[in-house]
Amino acid sequence: MTRIDAKFAELKASGKKAFVAYVMAGDPDYETSLEIVKSLPAAGVDVIELGLPFTDPMADGPTIQLAGQRALEGGMTLQKTLDLATEFRKEDDTTPIVLMGYYNPIYNRGVDTFLADAKAAGIDGLIIVDLPPEEDDELCIPAQKAGLNFIRLATPTTDDKRLPTVLQNTSGFVYYVSITGITGSAEAQAADVGPEVARIKAKTDLPVIVGFGIRTPESAESIAGIADGAVVGSAIVAKIANGDPVESVQAYVKTLADGAHRA
């Protein structure tokens, strides 16, 4: 059982929905980023999604693209991202960390080396958005064997024919992308998302978490109300981009987490 599995079992037992927060590793700089990540559990974050900076983040909107650029310009690398997770683990051995990014940096490092290093750093799961299920032998299957969850995205265009393929080797949770398009581009609507979540849950026992287009405590609450939890990324990253102090970012994240936990 991974930390992700344990967290969702704990939430289910207490009748709570999950709040997942995304931040880009190394944005605006390594030290501030580490401080922000360390602040998230106290703000009520159940699972941390840690963005891996990449030069060509095709699934991300301008907010997260710019965060990745800032991180890369500040010298952030895959190794420093793992170092950040290692530092976080010195104080927190229970909050799950999901590394979210693209395959190229992992491929360059070598899959076996990466998986061993990620496991040692305290990474619990991976979301690699540019590896489809047809490429599961590349990373998904080895990751599962190494004890990491491999979390897949389902989208509004994932039809009933495609869904079983998407779910086949997924573990930890299913990430449902609430809107068609890039991150941060529109607002999620519970009325639209609800039937899609129900459709996915009919095919899997995994928790279904909804992300993209959630910016307020109210939307976090409404989306968590029809799913197993909510993810917020771009809205948090925008606060960091504004230069808000860590305490301010933490306070904002707490309002979102409180919203999801009310559901």
Rank of each mutant, 00 (worst) to 15 (best):
N108G: 15
P28S: 06
K119M: 07
V45E: 01
T113H: 09
L50R: 00
R70A: 05
V23F: 01
D56Q: 12
L115K: 03
Y103Q: 10
A25H: 02
A85S: 10
D130I: 11
P96K: 01
L52H: 04
V47C: 06
D83R: 05
S14M: 11
N104Q: 13
A116L: 09
I123C: 01
V129A: 13
T94F: 06
L66H: 14
L84K: 01
L66Q: 15
A21G: 08
E31H: 10
K119Y: 09
L78Q: 01
G125E: 02
A85I: 14
P105K: 13
M76W: 03
A18I: 11
A118N: 03
I128K: 03
T95M: 02
D46S: 10
E35V: 00
G15E: 11
A43R: 00
R70D: 05
I48F: 04
G15T: 13
P28E: 04
D112M: 08
A43G: 09
P96N: 04
L126D: 01
M76E: 08
G101S: 10
K12R: 15
L126M: 08
G15M: 13
A21K: 00
G101K: 02
P57D: 11
S33I: 01
L82E: 02
M24F: 07
M100C: 09
A59F: 08
T32P: 01
A85K: 00
T81N: 05
Y103L: 13
G122D: 06
I106D: 03
Y30R: 04
N108L: 15
V111S: 06
A85D: 00
D130G: 10
T55F: 11
K38A: 02
D46C: 08
V111I: 15
